[in-house]
């Protein structure tokens, strides 16, 4: 296996940034978020999770779809231009999995051309997590904290250097760009990796068991459990905006009758008007229905259509930032305690 000494990272980033947009976790005040690399960026590869997931780089929070013009009555549309190649460097395995969960949504025919175009030109360089955050529970979803299956290049932190493991054609190409910055790793370092992996896999202490949760939820639409959870919810939408797998969006126009643009922007299923129809009917009129829908989507609706794969990656962002501590881990735990077809089905 190859490795790259940490002292050579600045050189590496300069080289990668010359060929494409390079995004990596950058510290600004007390916050770490993915940002475009520039010389002098305060890169922080130690922070386990960025405040926001890098989802925005594939599915921007706000994105122009087209501009329109009306001239002498003639209406014309001009599609927004596509974007170029990019590298997301330092993405954690949970966030890599989240992209693998967005792929089937946006790739499903008719495919979303904006997402597809970006995704096909994106190279994911993932860094394994040696130490979990207190709210990490990715292992509950079968994610290896030190190994992202969907990464193009996997980096393993060995102290003074990263072991570099290209996984895909895109990854090989990137390793070529790294060129002489890479050197052969010693056998001892590769052996150390094995131990690291075992330690990382058992470092999370959530004790969550997802087994049977999906199946139980098939019968829990009318369960009183939702009663308990929704009352706390403020409908602020924080969970949905921080979630790396949430993909809901709104479409709006901005402009005059003569010219302007149509854009899409993230939306939240926690909001009342998300499903409120023009003539007044709302199939999810209250927080109870909306909170239920969000958890059901993550833990039952999505898996139903995707071979039982949950639509949550255990990144812990919503757990950390929910102002009323409505904790998905607790929700999973409570569902796990319920017997299939047991009590509590009548509200």
């Amino acid at each position: 296996m190859k490795k790259i000494d940490k002292s050579k990272l600045e050189d590496l980033w300069g080289r990668l940034a010359a060929e494409q947009d390079l995004f990596l976790p950058v510290q600004q005040d007390s916050v770490v978020n993915f940002a475009l690399w520039q010389e002098g960026s305060r890169v922080n590869l130690e922070a386990v999770n960025s405040l926001l997931p890098p989802k925005d780089l594939l599915f921007p929070q706000s994105e122009k779809i087209f501009s329109y013009k009306r001239r002498e009555g003639e209406l014309s549309f001009e599609e927004a231009p596509g974007s170029g190649p990019q590298v997301i460097f330092g993405i954690r395995p949970c966030d890599v999995r989240s992209i693998e969960l967005l792929d089937p949504v946006f790739f499903k025919e008719p495919a979303d051309t904006f997402y597809k175009n970006r995704r096909e030109q994106t190279t994911l360089v993932s860094i394994g997590c040696l130490e979990p955050d207190t709210t990490c529970f990715c292992t509950a979803f079968g994610i290896q904290p030190l190994d992202a299956e969907g990464a193009d290049v996997m980096l393993y932190d060995m102290g003074t250097a990263y072991l570099v493991s290209p996984r895909t054609e895109k990854g090989e190409k990137l390793a070529e760009e790294m060129g002489e910055l890479l050197e052969e790793a010693a056998g001892a370092e590769e052996e150390g990796l094995q131990q690291q992996q075992e330690a990382a896999a058992s470092a999370q202490e959530h004790g969550l068991d997802l087994d049977g949760v999906f199946e139980k939820l098939n019968d829990m639409f009318d369960h009183c459990i939702w009663e308990k959870f929704y009352r706390r919810c403020l409908a602020c939408g924080t969970c949905t905006y921080l979630c790396p797998t949430c993909h809901c969006f709104d479409i709006q126009d901005d402009g005059s009758p003569e010219e302007g643009q149509r854009f899409r922007c993230w939306d939240s299923c926690m909001y009342e008007d998300y499903t409120h129809m023009g003539h007044g009917h709302n199939p999810r009129p209250g927080r109870r229905e909306r909170v239920r829908n969000r958890f059901m989507h993550k833990l039952n609706y999505f898996p139903k259509d995707h071979d039982g794969v949950y639509h949550c990656v255990g990144c812990g962002r919503c757990v950390q930032k929910c102002p009323v501590n409505l904790d998905i881990m607790q929700v999973i735990e409570e569902i796990g305690k319920e017997g299939v077809g047991g009590e509590g089905h009548d509200r």
């Binding site: 949504v105 946006f106 499903k108 008719p110 979303d112 993909h247 809901c248 969006f249 709104d250 479409i251 899409r264 939306d267 299923c269 998300y274 499903t275 409120h276 129809m277 023009g278 199939p283 829908n293 059901m296 989507h297 039952n300 609706y301 999505f302 139903k304 259509d305």
Partner: peptide
């Protein structure tokens, strides 16, 4: 049926009835 829709192509999320 009729539900609120934005994208029409199964991505924006709001017209779901379960899955």
């Amino acid at each position: 049926l009729e539900l609120k829709m934005k994208c029409g192509v199964g991505k924006c999320g709001r017209c779901n009835i379960g899955e």
